[in-house]
Nucleic acid binder design. Sequence first.
DNA 1: GCTTATGTTTACTG
DNA 2: ACAGTAAACATAAG
Length: 262
Amino acid sequence: MPELPDVEGYRRTLAEHGTGHRIQQVEVLDPGVLRDTDPAELASTLAGQQLRRPDRHGKWLLAHTDGPTVLLHFGMTGELRWMRSDEPRHRHDRVVFRLDDGAAELRYRDMRKLQGLRLAHGPGEVEQELAELGPDALGIERDEFLTMLQQRRGAIKPALVDQSRIAGLGNLLADEILWRARVHPTTPARQLTDAQRRRLYDQLRRVLARAVPAGRVPPLPSWLTGVRDQQHPHCPRCGAELSRTTVGGRSTVWCPHCQASD
DNA sequence: GCTTATGTTTACTG
DNA sequence: ACAGTAAACATAAG
């Protein structure tokens, strides 16, 4: 699930229910998701802190408080849910934040524990943790994006998901953007025409503009994302059978007709 | 048993 | 320094 639009959705959940409220208790159900911290430290540093407006950079959610900031990453299967406290716990609920609203609580749920939670004790530490990330995909400017593509040597798809160049795009978004821009995923970034580069930027913006309010890459039948997991998926635009291969180690779906190969 | 899954890091190779 | 690949992490589903 979690690419930029999903994490932005979790940020909205946290902003809506958390901002201005105090953390009463942090219950760690599985310490396996804590990175560089432990249940005792997390609980003692966060208890009593007031949540401020949360932030997001790429796929990282920044839960600011008056004191430390919790950095949450959702890996491939994580989510943040606001649920009534009397709802039964899910087996993959790993950390529960109880606020001063006792009727409901925030739950960090994650099946696989590929990523997890980090604790940053000040703005400096937050910056340190995010130092390797490129500009956020939602705010990247055209020139920044075009320059990034020109500096990149390899194929275009791995460039789009390289978090150190542009933060927030994952496997689904990258395929969706390439399909809409009619660019083959293995085209060397440096061989892209100006028109292709501009289309990639425009479609990046369009896809995000639709996906962010939805809180996910919407699996609509008119989107590549909506058909890619079917048995023999067809291009929503031209009807050709879609191709699937591995690019940059990731499962990649594209239309051999619309996205002519290099 | 095998493969695959929306992510990232590390080790190794070119 | 830069890219590419494979493996690892942990868990479930088909």
